[in-house]
Each structure stands twice: as structure tokens, then as C-alpha cells.
Simulated assay, not measured.
Amino acid sequence: MKTQWNIFIAFFRVGMLGYGGGPSSIPLVHKEVVDKYKWMNDEEFGDLLALGNTLPGPIATKLAGYIGYRVSGLWGMINAVLATIIPTIILMIILLTSLSSIKEFDWVQGMTAAVIPVVGVMLAVLTWQFIEKAGKGMGWIPAVILGGVVFILLQFLSVHPGIIIGVLIVFALMKKDKNDQLDKQKEGDPS
């Protein structure tokens, strides 16, 4: 029961504080799952985030569903997803009923403006952690080259991110298949 409570609280906090959508939720999920409860390590979280980004739909609910299932099975998954979406549902009902009457207040406009740099810093920290992981895993030169190529494709050539992700997945699968074949050849080679 304590595990279910921890899952609910962790993802409820993410749902309440993830102002700005999925990108702002990712560092919050990381903080809860990796740093606080230690349900995963950084590498596992990075792999999960990469996989979650290849699938359609909101990233926060995908992360919650997988992590909840991993920690506590089907009930953990249901608990985590509900904990993630309940704050949004409640806040949307409240805000939509009162938005037109409060959107002109300075404090509302200030709150909206202040969130942007906070989310930017949270994403920058998470980005740096992934850059470090890529540098350690692939080597710094290939990681920087791949990052530069992807940046050019996205920013200057306007290639859809889904196409880039798809191509990289196919490339990774082909490389894995080639490595598996080499491993089998080494096992079969008596020399």
C-alpha cells in the first residue's frame, strides 16, 4: 500500500507542477523517479525517455504508465496515470470556468511569463545530462556530430522530428543486428 501511495504522490506532484506541458514534466518525473524514490537509474530513465518520445501521445502519461507498471504492476500503472491526469482535469475545469475573468490581471500575465525561463532552465539541465550520457556512450566526437546533424535537419531543413526518430531507430536496429551477427560469428569461430 505504501508503494501505491508513493507512486500516487510522485506522479500527482508531476501533474500539479508540470506547468507548460510535457517538456516541463520530464525533469520533474526524473527528480521523483531517479533521485527521490530510486525506481530507476539515469541510464534506464534516458532509455525510457527515448522510447517514450518515439510513441504518440503525451510524454508524462507514457512515462507514468511505464514506471507505474514497472514498480507495481497493472495497479501501479493505473495509479500513476490517474495521478498524472487528475490535477490537469481539476485545474482545467477550474481555469476554464474562471479564465475569461482573470486573464487580464497582472499577476496572471506575470505567472505565465515567469514560467517560460524556469521551464527553459529545467530543460537545459536535462539536455546537458543527456549530452553527457551520449558523450560517454557514443564518444564525444560522434555525439557532437550527430547532434549537429540533427540540429541542422530540424532547424534549417525543417525535417519532421518523427522522420529523424524513425531513421535513427532503423539505423540502431540495423547496427544491433550487425553486432549480433558479429557476436555469433565470434562464438562459432574456434580461433
Rank of each mutant, 00 (worst) to 15 (best):
G22R: 03
V118F: 08
D106P: 05
M40D: 09
W140S: 12
G76P: 12
T61G: 04
P87G: 03
L74M: 15
V125N: 12
A50P: 02
K2V: 05
E132R: 01
I67T: 05
T97C: 03
T88I: 05
G148W: 12
W39T: 11
I67C: 11
A83G: 10
K133N: 10
V14H: 00
I131E: 10
S24V: 07
A114E: 00
K36N: 04
Y19E: 06
T3R: 05
A50G: 14
R13K: 13
L146P: 04
G120S: 14
I85H: 07
A50D: 12
K31V: 12
Y66M: 12
A80C: 02
G18V: 00
V33G: 14
V71N: 14
P23M: 11
F45R: 01
S24A: 15
D35G: 00
N6R: 13
T61V: 08
L82P: 11
M122Y: 14
N79G: 07
F8T: 11
W39F: 11
P58A: 14
L96P: 00
E32Q: 11
R13I: 06
D106S: 13
A143Q: 09
L17F: 02
G73F: 04
F130I: 06
W75K: 14
Y19T: 04
W39K: 07
V121M: 13
L63S: 05
G20K: 07
I145S: 07
I86A: 09
G137I: 06
L146I: 10
A143W: 11
G139K: 03
G18L: 05
R13N: 05
L99W: 13
L51P: 01
D47E: 13
G21H: 09
G52R: 04
L17R: 00
A143P: 09
E43P: 01
Q109H: 12
V29W: 09
I131R: 05
A64V: 10
K133D: 15
F45M: 05
G15N: 01
G65I: 12
V119K: 02
L55Y: 02
E44M: 03
S72H: 14
G110M: 08
M40E: 03
I7G: 04
M77Q: 06
G76C: 15
A10Y: 01
L95S: 12
M77E: 15
P142V: 09
D47W: 02
A114T: 00
D42C: 05
L126R: 06
W140P: 05
K103T: 09
M111R: 02
A60I: 12
K38G: 06
N79E: 14
H30W: 10
F8S: 08
W140L: 11
Q4W: 12
H30L: 09
K103R: 15
P142K: 10
K38L: 09
Q129K: 11
M92I: 00
V119H: 08
K31Y: 14
L146G: 08
A10E: 06
G52E: 14
Y19I: 05
I78S: 13
K62Y: 02
S101P: 02
L51Q: 03
M122Q: 13
T3M: 07
